[in-house]
């Protein structure tokens, strides 16, 4: 559905050339759900804008839905849907008018555009707002209208740029319900950007971790987490003096990747933590070390990002969420 080779975009800013996307090589199969995950400024939006014909590449090629984005942008546009970061509907327009215009722009007959608009308004909990002026809608309502506008022509390939930024959990779930329905019922391919790891984790079958204009990891969320981060076992010993010896023993265990000590806590990074934890307990018991408490944490994509870059996605993405200091995992 999407094939890119060496796709690159640079900008001139203050006399310097900034490479927003550097040599993107990508093959996305029809029917997949793919997330671009990375901090702000990583090149997610620029990549999406090139794939949706909104921005010409500086170098490289991209074929989207069978058409080259530079040679045949109209061919690409007919086959894709797009949800930008901004508001899709004009402030002074009525909700229904904007939806019908969208349908008409994709060549639907007026009656058909109208019928589909009605269905989408119902589906996205916007019923009763058809005659309202867009500017009077709440933020959540506007975002759902954006989604409706992107879905009105039932595209085989849908691009979503930060679809749920600024939305409450209910609206967020509602939006994903409709996007995934398009995916399930019509087999649409979904490509989205996000800096919410939960969103990539929950909905994407494949995650492209992006940083500084490059894809630094590319796999299913499960595999990324298992291979790049692993589970985290945290435990404390009954006697503080045992902390050091316990850590030393933990390092000798099978499949353990890294052991760190932080305050009185021993942190063991390993694969298959659920199997490893009882092994660890038996081993420490045999050595006469009494364990006081244990905790097993499944990895998040944030741990993946941390492993790859040494930074957490949260501190790169939004500064207002406090983060615990990690030491290289």
């Amino acid at each position: 559905m999407i094939h890119t080779r060496g796709l690159t975009r640079s900008f001139r800013a203050k006399g310097e050339t900034v490479e927003a996307v550097r040599g993107l090589d990508l093959d996305i199969e029809a029917g997949s759900v793919v997330a671009f995950l990375g901090p702000n400024g990583a090149g997610k939006t620029t990549s999406l804008r090139m794939l949706t014909t909104l921005l010409p590449p500086t170098a490289g090629t991209a074929t989207v839905a069978g058409h080259d984005v530079v040679a045949d942008p109209a061919g690409v546009r007919r086959r894709i849907g797009y949800l930008g970061q901004g508001n899709s509907a004009g402030t002074g327009f009525r909700v229904m008018d904007e939806l019908v215009t969208q349908g008409r722009a994709y060549g639907l007959r007026r009656a058909e555009a109208h019928a589909r608009a009605e269905r989408l308004l119902d589906a996205l909990e916007l019923e009763g707002l058809a005659r309202r002026t867009v500017g009077t809608l709440s933020g959540g309502q506007r975002r759902r209208l954006d989604i409706a506008m992107a879905l009105v022509h039932e595209p085989a390939l849908l691009f979503l740029d930060e679809p749920s930024t600024g939305l409450d959990p209910h609206s967020r779930a509602n939006i994903w319900e409709h996007v995934l329905r398009l995916h399930k019922d019509l087999g649409a391919t979904i490509v989205f950007t996000t800096h919410y790891l939960e969103e990539a984790d929950l909905w994407a079958g494949r995650v492209l971790v992006v940083d500084h204009g490059r894809v630094i990891a590319d796999d299913s969320p499960e595999r990324l987490k298992a291979e790049l981060a692993g589970d985290l076992i945290t435990f404390t010993t009954a006697d503080p003096a045992d902390t050091g010896p316990a850590a030393t023993r933990a390092r000798t265990l099978r499949a353990v990747r890294e052991v760190t000590v932080e305050d009185r806590e021993v942190r063991v990074r390993t694969s298959d933590g659920d199997v490893r934890l009882p092994e660890l307990l038996r081993d420490l018991d045999a050595a006469g070390i009494r364990v006081h408490s244990t905790r097993l944490a499944r990895p998040t994509l944030d741990d993946v990002f941390l492993t790859l870059t040494g930074r957490t996605l949260r501190e790169s993405a939004d500064a207002d969420i406090p983060t615990t200091p990690h030491q290289g995992a």
Partner: peptide, 10 residues
Amino acid sequence: GAFERLLVTP
């Protein structure tokens, strides 16, 4: 963003 939405249509 409304203009962008139109630009991405055919």
